[in-house]
Nucleic acid binder design. Structure first.
Length: 205
DNA sequence: ATGACGATTTACT
DNA sequence: GTAAATCGTCATA
């Protein structure tokens, strides 16, 4: 039985994700990331900040130099696959795989503007302003209950995670700058591969 | 077997 | 501004 479509929501298919990471990073700004919990609760937020990790040559990427391990295996999967990793012994971060199969590119989702399920997010995040519920890659995974069990899942069906794209009223203004938190130096640390909507108050610090 | 590290967050001076 | 928290993963031995 087909699900009722929300008006204004455009279909997102594999071709939407199968572009260069820097292109996808811009493309998903303004889209809505939706998380459906096992009990059916819908959590969502508008994507307002992203970073592109552009392939084996990218010194900032987990796949630099062609590194391929059980941890980052999903980076090598089809466009539209979810890559979730665990870092600093306490945080998860979520990526959307872009490009072509076997070419490890991905877009890190760095911040959301909360929309649905704000009460759940508040409970999951504890004493923080609504504007900081999802203002960082680890924060949004906490708020949306995203962990490694969602690694390797796909955004291409109405599963636990998917993306909704609204018809834009007007093309949003996008700011760019260097990515955050990289341990590498040089041109890859400086490359303007971080993208955000400067109109949002939910950008990571 | 061991050690160093990390695409971060939070608290504290 | 600086530092602690905290542990799975991977490279080296």
């Amino acid at each position: 039985m087909p699900e009722p479509k929300r008006s204004n929501v455009v279909n997102v298919d594999r071709a939407f994700f199968a572009v260069h990471a820097a292109r996808l990073a811009r493309r998903i700004l303004g889209c809505t990331l939706v998380r459906v919990l096992p009990d059916g609760t819908r959590l969502s937020g508008i994507i307002v900040e992203t970073e592109a990790y552009v392939g084996v040559d990218d010194d900032g990427s987990h796949a630099r130099g062609g590194r391929r391990t059980p941890k980052n295996e999903s980076m090598y999967a089809d466009a539209g696959t979810v890559y979730v990793y665990f870092t600093y012994g306490m945080h998860y971060c979520m990526n959307v795989v872009s490009g072509t199969i076997d070419q490890p590119e991905a877009v890190l989702i760095r911040a959301l503007e909360p929309v649905d399920g704000i009460a759940f997010m508040q409970a999951a995040r504890k004493r923080t302003r609504d504007q900081d519920l999802c203002s960082g890659p680890g924060k949004l995974c906490q708020a949306l209950a995203i962990d490694r069990s969602l690694d390797r899942s796909t955004l291409l069906s109405s599963g636990p995670l998917f993306i909704e794209r609204q018809i834009p009223v007007r093309r949003p203004k996008v700011a760019t700058g260097p990515r955050i938190g990289l341990s590498c130096g040089g041109r890859w640390a400086a490359a303007p591969l971080r993208f955000w909507l400067p109109s949002s108050s939910c950008i990571s610090g």
